[in-house]
């Protein structure tokens, strides 16, 4: 299992990456942490002619607070966000989700932007971005576009990114006061991709529940404050809406069951976290 042949360029700046993407389009692939792409190349599921390596692009290696968001550049690893001292206060949902993302050795090299660009329907970082209504900054030679998570994710491994665009930055909204966050996941073994993952955001305005691993992309439901049977009914409708499929990992019925159970649990946890803060 070895990759096919390709040309390789170590990228020094976002401008350079965009210049080359404009020139080569689909035949060029951004290589970030390589924790998904190298697997794909080793198995020869893709054979791009040119790899643009952004993993050591210093100007893109940043994690910083910017207005009311945590901005993560294309070269920043998942570990560099996970090990931030203040993360639990800044973006509590990410703090809760990181331990579920693969393994420590993989997070050391995998990037945040790479996971967003890859858009695996079971991946935790896209799910959190959708739950928090975060943003993706796309950059090409022509300029920048900023898309909301809901606009960016379009399907299984499918996004609104055009072939000449770099995912330059991803922005996670910072925790708001009086708002609670919770994350739960069910997978066969710890670190495996999620069979179902749920993230809840509960504020004065209501409930937001994001579910990954079921539909072809992370899906978000928005509800006013619901309790007991009204919440059960809403969760059940949402579980059916997601059009779960049977696959070798789990049946559609089991996935709906997990959405109802985990969904209720994260909503309860997030609600408790709001009252704890007051």
């Amino acid at each position: 299992m070895k990759p096919g042949a390709f040309d390789y360029i170590r990228i020094d700046s976002a401008e350079e990456a965009c210049e080359l993407l404009a020139q080569y389009g689909d035949d060029a692939r951004i290589l970030a942490g390589g924790q998904s792409l190298m697997t794909v190349l080793n198995m020869r599921l893709a054979q791009p002619g040119l790899l643009l390596d952004v993993s050591r692009t210093a100007p893109l290696d940043y994690v910083r607070l910017q207005d009311d968001k945590l901005a993560v550049g294309a070269a920043a690893t998942q570990a560099s966000v996970e090990w931030r001292a203040g993360l639990a206060g800044e973006v509590p949902l990410l703090k809760l989700a990181f331990p579920h993302i693969s393994h420590f050795q993989v997070r050391n090299r995998g990037t945040v932007c790479g996971s967003i660009a890859h858009a695996d329907p079971s991946a935790e970082l896209p799910l959190c971005l959708a739950a928090l209504e975060g943003e993706v900054v796309l950059r090409s030679k022509k300029g920048r576009r900023v898309l909301k998570a809901g606009q960016f994710f379009q399907g299984m491994l499918l996004t609104a990114r055009r072939p000449d665009e770099l995912v330059e930055e991803v922005r996670y909204p910072l925790a708001a006061t009086g708002t609670g966050y919770a994350f739960e996941e069910f997978s066969t073994r710890h670190g495996d991709f999620a069979i179902v993952a749920c993230a809840a955001v509960v504020s004065r305005d209501g409930i937001r529940l994001a579910v990954g691993g079921v539909a072809d992309r992370p899906r978000v439901a928005r509800w006013p404050h619901l309790e007991d049977s009204a919440l059960d009914a809403a969760l059940n409708d949402f579980a059916w809406d997601l059009e779960a499929q049977d696959d070798p990992h789990a049946s559609a019925k089991y996935r709906r069951h997990l959405v109802r159970r985990l969904g209720r649990r994260v909503i309860q946890q997030a609600s408790a976290a709001t009252s704890g803060e007051k």
Binding site: Y8, D53, N108, R109
Partner: peptide
Amino acid sequence: TVRIDGAAARACLTLAVQ
């Protein structure tokens, strides 16, 4: 698994040129 600049990482998901 090896350490690259100190961090444990998969050598099979890293190119030698990297």
